[in-house]
């Protein structure tokens, strides 16, 4: 197997007293979708924001495309992208203007064609002249995804991308992400509180608790290990009983 697209080594981040991410070492393979699961405040978002250079790690390192992140930030950022419900596109520009601006920022060659292609892909051409701030949350999620795919990223960081979608759209988005992943051999790091999301889309799951890995494996492996019927039960088990497992020796399944 080839080298991992993304690898963190002993990544830690503390905000004052709070240890948000604790010695996180993970690897994401090419073409793989890796789910980051964990209770509120487990450190998922912080981990992702470090991989985007928005937060500087307290210690540890991040390698993306086998390059050190801090040293090759711009090059790496041009080949990855992210989407999340808490980061908007300028809400006083139209959908079309936003996509053009971000194409430029990502150095896309054929700006108009690309923006057009993205709107097609996520089915929002009819919204092209709408002000982004006036979109419904589902529509703006799709616009965010358009932005996330605009530079044909090789690695995608998705922080709760389906959080505000209705079940129908959520299913469509999942299917689409999965299809694009296969077509483009894309690697994705994915967080969600929707177990359905995680089960259907992720090849492998990492459970975080208080910033460190408790368990990792496929959804079936994890369920079997904890002798639970569903991932949701596993989640509740870990969230309420997390300290039962020694976080210093994450269980590899």
């Amino acid at each position: 197997m080839a080298y991992p697209i993304l690898r963190t080594r002993n990544l830690s981040k503390s905000f004052g007293e709070t240890l948000a991410v604790d010695n996180l070492s993970l690897a994401l393979r090419r073409g793989e979708i890796l789910g980051l699961l964990g209770a509120n405040g487990a450190g998922k978002t912080t981990a992702m924001q470090m991989m985007l250079g928005l937060i500087k790690p307290t210690s540890g390192s991040i390698e993306i495309f086998r390059l050190n992140f801090e040293q090759h930030r711009i090059h790496i950022l041009s080949r990855i992208n992210f989407s999340s419900t808490y980061a908007n596109l300028p809400n006083n520009l139209t959908v079309w203007q936003n996509l053009r601006v971000f194409s430029r920022l990502y150095g896309v060659k054929r700006v108009r064609e690309k923006a057009e292609e993205m709107m097609n892909l996520f089915d929002i051409e009819h919204l092209r002249n709408r002000i982004s701030g006036q979109l419904s949350s589902g529509e703006s999620t799709r616009l965010n995804l358009c932005k996330a795919f605009i530079n044909d990223p090789e690695l995608l960081l998705l922080d709760e991308p389906t959080a505000s979608l209705d079940p129908d759209i959520a299913d469509k988005v999942r299917t689409l992400i999965n299809r694009l992943r296969k077509e483009r051999n894309l690697s994705i790091l994915y967080t969600s509180h929707n177990m359905r999301d995680i089960e259907t889309i992720c090849d492998r799951i990492i459970f975080l608790h208080n910033g460190s890995i408790i368990v990792e494996g496929s959804s079936d492996e994890i369920k079997r290990h904890f002798r639970q019927k569903s991932l949701e039960d596993v989640f509740i088990h870990i969230a309420r009983d997390g300290k039962v497992v020694d976080p210093l020796s994450p269980e590899k399944l």
């Binding site: 985007l52 250079g53 711009i74 950022l77 908007n88 596109l89 990502y106 932005k147």
Partner: peptide, 11 residues
């Protein structure tokens, strides 16, 4: 417009 993250996560 809460756009800072998208901006600084861009190259």
């Amino acid at each position: 417009t809460r756009n800072l993250l998208n901006l600084f996560a861009a190259p």
